[in-house]
Write a protein that binds this DNA or RNA. Structure first.
Length: 423
DNA sequence: TCTGGGGTCCTAGGACCC
DNA sequence: TCTGGGGTCCTAGGACCC
């Protein structure tokens, strides 16, 4: 059996660890620029606030029902995530961190232990020591763990936070209850297609011919069917280094000046190179994109991306910055109101296994010691204390709604992004 | 006024090879 | 008029996840 440990309303629960007075209150956490709702307490969900709701559209509702809203504090969430992981993983031999608020546990070989009770204990300890409420779904496959977890969250009074989906009877009942769109791996597009073809519940999918599923969903579909039947197709994955790194931001205000946008993009490039060095890899490919505000139909729209393949792999901020600049020149057009931009790096090789192009100059190795020294200084004295001349050090996105408790938290805790693995 | 920021995998099609 | 049958690699785009 596997188990999926999933934190309830994770970002909101983190906020509540800072301020217990938020308990039983409607609370939401907002994305960058305080733009969208990205986490909602149960009370906020009950008020009808949808996921990803634009905050400005719900201002009135927030006021009316005294909904507390907070800017996202990723340092805090990463820190709490680590605490939860540390506790949960101490109960098993193998596990997989799936996202900031979810991890799978492997109970293979736990023959003489009551897994359900064991998970109750895990849940209680996380609640007590990390102060984060979790739900645990137990099942023979990852996909069924997701189903079990959904059942726990749907019927909190019935299951005390833990539900085990093990017998064929229970599985059939669960799949006849679960809407197809709630199956792990079925997104919005596929859900529509499924409904059009008479598939409304997860169970309906199992009644369809395999050829049909293969045609509509590709190889995913076949795997999904087996997983739902309890036949394991997905193993727990070992932590792996990232295969791409992206730094993208919406701007608080639209930018029209070329040099303003350039400065942002150069900064994003530098963050990319820092993250590359953190995992000791170099990239062979860089993409720069810019776009206008897609919601402003009154303004001319423009979005574009350009990519360059590097002659020699690098993670030097200087070399990456140079390429980012060239790409920016290629992609930027005068006369638009820019709302968002980003840099994405791809195609990684380990720092010490670079294949060098004989005919191109390669200065990566001259840069590396300087770069590593810069990283060390920034780690010691704070983000962006040492930076390239092209960076302003200012942010053009904002987090207005930080709380005083957070300042205290930042003072009392040390943590690094490196501890945390994004999925 | 105001609409997030990351990631992964698969597939189809084109370029090229013998 | 008639024009094979394999491969591989790369890329763009589309789907999904949190």
């Amino acid at each position: 059996m596997y188990a999926l440990v999933d934190c309830n309303n994770f970002f909101v629960s983190c906020e509540r660890t800072l301020d217990p007075a938020l308990e039983n209150q409607p609370v939401v956490v907002l994305s960058n620029n305080d733009g969208c709702v990205v986490s909602r307490s149960r009370e906020a969900k009950d008020l009808g606030i949808p996921m990803a709701a634009p905050a400005f559209k719900f201002k009135e509702l927030f006021k009316e029902h005294n909904v507390k809203s907070f800017s996202a504090k990723f340092e805090l969430y990463n820190f709490k995530s680590q605490q939860v992981i540390e506790i949960a993983k101490s109960y098993v031999l193998d596990y997989e961190v799936y996202s900031i608020d979810e991890l799978f546990l492997d109970f293979t070989g736990f023959k003489y232990i009551n897994i359900h009770d064991y998970c109750i204990e895990i849940k209680n300890r996380i609640g007590k020591e990390a102060n984060i409420p979790v739900s645990i779904g137990i099942a023979p496959t990852k996909t069924l763990c997701k189903v079990a977890n959904r059942i726990v969250k749907k019927y909190p009074d019935n299951f005390d936070g833990v539900f085990i989906l093990d017998t064929p009877d229970k599985i059939e009942k669960a799949l006849k209850w679960l809407p197809i769109g709630d199956v792990w791996g079925i997104g919005r597009r596929l859900a529509v297609k499924m409904n059009d073809n008479g598939v409304h519940k997860a169970w309906d999918l199992l009644q369809k011919p395999e050829m049909w599923v293969r045609k509509v969903m590709g190889i995913h579909g076949i795997r999904m069917i087996n997983e739902l039947k309890g036949i394991r197709q997905l193993e727990l994955d070992a932590p792996s280094p990232k295969k791409s790194i992206a730094v993208t931001r919406s701007f608080m205000e639209m930018l029209t000046q070329k040099e303003e946008v350039r400065e942002r993009v150069e900064t994003f490039g530098m963050y990319c190179s820092e993250r590359l060095r953190k995992q000791n890899t170099c990239c062979k490919m860089i993409t720069v994109f810019v776009q206008t505000n897609r919601f402003r139909k009154d303004l001319p729209e423009y979005k574009n991306a350009v990519t360059q393949i590097l002659p020699n792999p690098t993670n030097s901020s200087i070399l990456i910055g140079r390429v980012v600049n060239e790409l920016f020149e290629a992609v930027f057009k005068e006369g638009f109101h820019y709302k968002k931009a980003g840099v994405i790096v791809n195609d990684f090789v380990p720092e010490d296994q670079r294949l060098i192009n004989l005919f191109e100059e390669d200065t990566q190795n001259q840069h590396l010691p300087v770069m590593k020294a810069m990283d060390a200084l920034n780690k010691k004295f704070g983000k962006d204390k040492v930076r390239l001349g092209s960076m302003s050090g200012e942010n053009t996105y904002g987090r207005k709604q930080l709380s005083p408790e957070y300042e205290a938290f930042l003072k009392n805790n040390t943590f690094t992004e490196a501890n945390f693995r994004f999925h």
